[in-house]
Design a protein around this nucleic acid. Sequence first.
DNA 1: AGGATGCTTCGATTAACATCGAACTATGAA
DNA 2: TTCATAGTTCGATGTTAATCGAAGCATCCT
Lengths: 229, 229
Amino acid sequence: MKEGPNIALAGSLIGDPARANMLLALMSGKALTASELAREAGITVQTASFHLAKLTDAEFIQPRKQGRHRYFNLAEDVAVILEQLIGLAASRGHTRTRTGPNDLALRKARICYDHLAGESGVQLFDFLKTQGLICGPDEDLQISNSGTDFFNSFEIDLDAMYRSKRPTCKACLDWSARRSHLAGWLGAALLQKFFQLGWARRLDNSRIIQFSPSGEQKFQALLDVPKRN
Amino acid sequence: MKEGPNIALAGSLIGDPARANMLLALMSGKALTASELAREAGITVQTASFHLAKLTDAEFIQPRKQGRHRYFNLAEDVAVILEQLIGLAASRGHTRTRTGPNDLALRKARICYDHLAGESGVQLFDFLKTQGLICGPDEDLQISNSGTDFFNSFEIDLDAMYRSKRPTCKACLDWSARRSHLAGWLGAALLQKFFQLGWARRLDNSRIIQFSPSGEQKFQALLDVPKRN
DNA sequence: AGGATGCTTCGATTAACATCGAACTATGAA
DNA sequence: TTCATAGTTCGATGTTAATCGAAGCATCCT
């Protein structure tokens, strides 16, 4: 018997179409109920229950009870791998239908677990780095002094961020842009801020993030700050 | 029918124990024959042939004929995902035997497809970055002027690197150290140099890279260069 | 040319897993 | 308390995929 990590277990969990559909649905970052996931996967709630038990045992998802509803969240490190697998499938042409307008919209701006991904997400990340607002290695980014000023002026609660146990800011490799976008607490907070400001909204039943015309303008204006060096 | 990337296909390819064993064997970076892969996976050559056909169709591996031997190489982007899956499995305790001395050795220094991973790999990467020998975003690192001098003095053929089509240097997230090590052409070239210098060697039938005592000293001396700022 | 080796293909077999109807439990509303 | 809804568990069924022996093809050695 071979020793070492059992990647076949992880692969087989992702490898069932029903489970894959549920995991992808959870990539939206929303908690979904067992019934909702059953519908997303096109199976009965009995079958969904069987699959959700497996995914829960493997710590791919976390359940949370609320009355008679069972909500499920995706584990963050699983989301990272799913993003990579989406990229691999796309690069190999392993798609289930032809690409369409939604495909372009997903490339432009989409939610990746809880943060902004796509070209807009990559643009944002590049901006934060080139402006020196965040610095350090991509897996352990820190906020600089000028970054603190910037985020405070943007009304991001940095104290809450520092109190949080999750990574403050880290890079997430974006399959569509082949560059990184910003994940972590800060990445999530920025996206929530764009929602709050009305710049962007998520589309129903999709990972697409849609900027309004004025929101897009404001977003680009934010990034179009004269360079400091 | 759901649309979008078919991650279930990729998951199911990795999800079979025999295929997973073969893929992990190919993580050593070596090309292996169908018979060798059958032995690695503990199956007959007929079964291996069936699986190798599937992996080839999906472009997870590339075949190469040499007389009556069929050699297979792992696709580089698949290697990146497998490294992530190894990390996920490790974090969940999904291992097939208890951790042992090999586990520590793998964490210390191992080959990841064709470059150095583990603590040593992370140390090397940190050194190159903090010394300013490479710079830029982790997915598109560039060699600085001082880096060019350094690598030339270390007898790395940079002209060959610039002629190569593969990424010159990029980061690869190391599951064991939770930080990145150096992948790409440069990462591979540096590891080959350590082999050539006799500082390190690969262990048979393992991904472990073993530094000799004097090699370890020289490697640490290389990294222990006074800081430039 | 004949034998050996590496590998592929085919067909039969077996095992594993996903599926859902029925029954049940837990929670919420009337 | 009763009914409705959400979700779980159980058992039976069907499907899918992995497996290997046998046969065959390609390549290499004597």
